[in-house]
Simulated scan of single mutants.
Amino acid sequence: MAKEQGQKVVAQNKKARHDYHVEDTWEAGMVLQGTEVKSLRMGRASLVDGFAEVDGGEVWLLGVHIPEYTQGTWTNHAARRRRKLLLNRAEIDKIERKVADKGYTLVPLSLYFKDGRAKVEIALAKGKKSWDKRHTIAEREANREKQVELGRRLKGRA
């Protein structure tokens, strides 16, 4: 069997960029059980309620829902169990220092396979206030209107 190449996205947390100011990101491997990998290969996962924490010098992923594998037997996994993330010691220390600051958290942005290995992209993020969210939406709509107007002018319809 040939080795997998490239990147296959399983799940993305689109709401994370809306709810948080993302400051820094890291790619981490995951310690998974066999049925979890099979379930992920079927494209089934949800990062909506997920977050990560540093505990005892290790980074753990919590709240991520990987549903049970349908053909699994008694060896099936729990859908929302704690999963260990694989990072370098220097990265873990850097994350731990930054998370210690008030208001920062670790959120998963995407879950994917890279060259056949399950990876998760985690981000150091700070929660947005409701006025920040409204400001972001207004900015996005203004940019969209600019692009539409620019397109009209280029086509000679202005």
Rank of each mutant, 00 (worst) to 15 (best):
L106K: 10
G116F: 03
G103D: 01
I66G: 03
A125I: 15
G57T: 06
D93T: 06
G34T: 04
G63E: 07
A125M: 09
M1E: 12
T35K: 14
H77P: 08
K84P: 02
A78N: 12
K114F: 08
E121A: 13
R80Y: 07
V10H: 10
V54M: 08
K133N: 00
G72P: 01
K15R: 15
G50R: 03
F51G: 05
T136K: 14
G63V: 00
K119S: 08
E91R: 12
F51N: 09
T75C: 06
A16E: 09
V22L: 15
S130Q: 10
M30C: 08
T105K: 09
G56C: 05
V10L: 11
I95S: 06
W60C: 05
A78M: 10
K133R: 14
L106I: 07
H65K: 13
H18V: 15
A28D: 10
V48G: 02
G34A: 07
A16Q: 08
K128Q: 04
A16Y: 15
A138V: 00
R144D: 08
E96Y: 03
W131T: 08
V37C: 02
V9S: 07
G63C: 01
R153A: 04
D49V: 07
A142K: 15
Q5F: 04
V64S: 05
V48L: 15
N13Y: 06
K94I: 05
A158K: 13
W74P: 03
A79E: 08
V10D: 06
A100P: 12
K84M: 01
G116A: 04
A123M: 14
V99A: 06
R44H: 12
A123R: 11
E91F: 02
A11H: 04
D101Q: 15
H77K: 10
Q12F: 02
